[in-house]
Write a protein that binds this DNA or RNA. Structure first.
Lengths: 346, 346
DNA sequence: CCGTTGATTGACAACGTTGTCTAGAGGCTA
DNA sequence: TAGCCTCTAGACAACGTTGTCAATCAACGG
């Protein structure tokens, strides 16, 4: 009457096992296993009895035991930087979709751009014996993964390459995209162009910087040190950097923002300036077309990246043994107006 | 020479177990277990030998076996509608953060607003024996969860209540928020106000509709059938609905958009109209302040919801046995301009 | 009527870990 | 020195499932 009053007669917190089902149905353990897994070799009559016992006891197979026995967990891990960043939403979703089609569950977590936390999370996933890992790395040394990969955990890096180990990677064309963005500004008459990017330890930030320099050099334009600022994407930092390069002795007339968070802050800052300043951002974002002027961006395709990475992962899990390779996903310049603002006379 | 050439001498795809470590260190199985788990009762010398064996073999504890033995998985499941929806990003992140503080991993998946898929996902998580579940329900009948809850899986519903079972829930004040939104429009002179909402089978859509009617009734305003449209949030549907109510014989002069996706499409449609139309949207979104006119919204606090839900879940897991309760998170009207547009004469 | 075949079924070990219990070593007191 | 206590260490069972293998039985051909 105390804790068995919940409708069933089982003790609260205790679940029936196959043994209970077997006893209730008057059959052997293995027969229950066969029914639960839809294996052949069971008479319709026996199957019915077992099914009845299953439903009346509320039995649900314990996948922990199954996993232990079978060795495969039918789950993959996804480690990304921030679950709340809208850029990773479609990537996350795409990975989940592919996992689902392969009957696998997705375990994920945020590294918060902290290499130690990334490692902690990855190793926790390895201890769970996920079948594979999709990692957007925060750190730049992944040798700690070597024993895991040797032990058979398939691993694919996305957005940024692995550090100091050989592994599959799916990357955006950061260099080319940045070059296109800056070339677009140059084509509209700009000669003094600023670049505000993420921390230089992040691979994508370095590649985009390289693209910036490449485009400037290709046009024969000099680059003033004060036009380039790499660092945190916190609004304060970006605001300060933007203001500095707009108020410099040789002020920029256009800004290339190195990722979506930078772009958003840059839009706010530019909005407050007396004269219009051209802007191109890396990463597309919702409503970029509704802001006035509409924001010209270099769009990545995060869903495509996620699909590609997960696809590669499952090919590995199916036993394909090619050497690790790096896949590059193209970017696309979407001209919406903010990049076409001509330089205002200084 | 064929498959043992990866640096270590173990077979590829096979991992060392505690037994291997014990053999290598010349100690018993249980001693290894003690070292791995930091339990007392091991001399420093023995511990050193075991540690050495662990690192040289690349041993990593198999949590599947541990889970099977201990009964607790140290993981919780999160089922939401769409991992890519920016509204759920901060909620997801907040749940993860709380889980992390409790040493638990997060397994998650999208229901795609499909009740069958929700159930499939939830039951898969139960089979994994997650300790608890945070569910943003797609369906309206959760009796299938009863045996699981009885068996001890803590469950908290977020954003929408559970259907046909008693369970904890964390909800926004959808009714109050909607009422405030519509009252705001009324206060700025509007008498013919349209409501474009989500599918009526979704609880939040119904609550917001109720808020709409309540505000209209409180102001003594009649509501024409053609002013209310519930259905899919697909852009085409929303576009058609908006256009219809703006071109009706008694056209609306203001629109209340029932959620973030509706708002975005509504902004695009209104932008194309010759005369300005007032707009208030449910859900805040990034850049709402940068669009012109800036969008007035009723903001929910998804991170707060996630934190609250996860906190409640872990309290349950700590053994608190109060009866299920429903927590309401307040909403906040953020006036930015689009709601203050006066009605244009018709 | 008997041996053979095929289908159905269950006993048992194993997956890798942790909880329980006992053995043994060593130190202390009487 | 006997007796007792503490501390370290390991043997063993158990968690719930699945793979292997052997047993049983009905049907069938000769």
């Amino acid at each position: 009457m105390t804790d068995t009053a919940r409708g069933t007669s089982r003790r609260y917190g205790t679940r029936p096992t196959m043994k209970d089902v077997a006893a209730r149905a008057g059959v052997g353990l293995k027969t229950v296993s066969r029914v639960v897994n839809g294996e052949p070799g069971v008479t319709p009559d026996t199957e019915r009895r077992v099914q009845e016992a299953i439903t009346s006891l509320g039995f649900r197979r314990n996948d922990s035991a199954r996993i232990l026995r079978k060795g495969r967990t039918a789950s993959i891990g996804l480690v990304l930087e921030d679950l709340a960043d809208p850029f990773y939403g479609p990537l996350n979703r795409a990975v989940e979709e592919v996992a689902r089609r392969h009957g696998a569950l997705l375990i994920n977590g945020s590294s918060a751009e902290d290499p130690a936390r990334e490692q902690e999370l990855v190793l926790a996933l390895c201890a769970r014996r996920v079948d594979g890992l999709v990692i957007i790395p925060a750190g730049d040394d992944h040798r700690y993964l070597e024993p895991e990969i040797t032990a058979g955990i398939a691993t694919v890096f996305v957005d940024r390459p692995a550090g100091r180990i050989e592994a599959d990677a799916v990357l955006s064309d950061n260099f080319g995209g940045a070059r296109d963005a800056v070339a677009h500004l140059i084509a509209h008459g700009h000669r003094r162009i600023g670049f505000i990017g993420d921390q230089p330890r992040i691979h994508t930030a370095r590649e985009r910087l390289r693209g910036y320099h490449s485009a400037m050099a290709a046009a024969g334009l000099p680059v003033d040190d004060s036009w380039v600022s790499l660092g945190s994407t916190a609004p304060d930092r970006v605001r300060a950097a933007t203001t500095t390069m707009l108020d410099a002795p040789t002020p920029v007339t256009a800004v290339f923002a190195g990722n979506n968070r930078v772009t958003v802050t840059a839009v706010r800052v530019l909005r407050e300036r007396p004269r219009p300043v051209a802007l191109v951002g890396f990463d597309d974002f919702e409503l970029a077309d509704l802001v006035r002027p509409a924001i010209t961006v270099v769009a990545q395709d995060p869903a495509h990246m996620g699909r590609t990475a997960a696809g590669l992962l499952f090919r590995r899990l199916d036993g394909i043994e090619d050497p690790p390779r790096s896949t590059e996903i193209p970017t696309r310049l979407i001209a919406r107006g903010s990049g076409e603002i001509p330089p205002s006379e200084s």
